[in-house]
Amino acid sequence: MNAGLKPGAPTRQSSWRIFRWPLAMALANAIGLVAALVGDGWYDLISWATLGGTIVVMIVAWRGRGTR
């Protein structure tokens, strides 16, 4: 239970739990940007997938805001 907190009060979260998805997205974006600058072929596919993944995550998060 929440030690000393009112029922329904928010609980504390660790920094890792808060920042793990933004850090993962930042790493994916960095990989995508480097891949776009370095080469062609498979590098283009990697850059499109990683940079497009950020847009997908943003849309899913935006649509999911109203359900909570």
Rank of each mutant, 00 (worst) to 15 (best):
A61F: 02
V56Q: 03
R12M: 05
S47V: 10
I18F: 09
W48C: 02
K6V: 06
G64R: 15
K6I: 03
A49M: 07
R12S: 09
M1N: 07
M25N: 06
R12N: 08
N2A: 15
G52K: 08
A3W: 09
F19S: 09
P22L: 13
R17E: 13
T67P: 00
G4D: 05
A35R: 02
L51K: 02
N29P: 02
A24C: 07
I59E: 00
A3K: 12
G53N: 05
I46L: 15
A35F: 10
G52Q: 11
T11W: 01
T54P: 03
S14M: 07
S14G: 14
G53K: 01
R68L: 14
R17I: 10
K6H: 10
V38H: 11
L45Q: 10
P7N: 04
T54G: 15
G64H: 13
R63A: 04
A61K: 03
G32Y: 00
L5W: 05
G8A: 06
A35Y: 05
I55N: 00
A9L: 08
K6C: 03
V34L: 14
L27C: 14
V57P: 02
R12H: 03
I55K: 00
W21A: 09
I18K: 08
P7H: 00
L23D: 06
G53S: 13
L27P: 11
G41Q: 13
I18G: 02
W48T: 07
A26W: 02
G4H: 03
D44G: 15
T50L: 14
W48K: 11
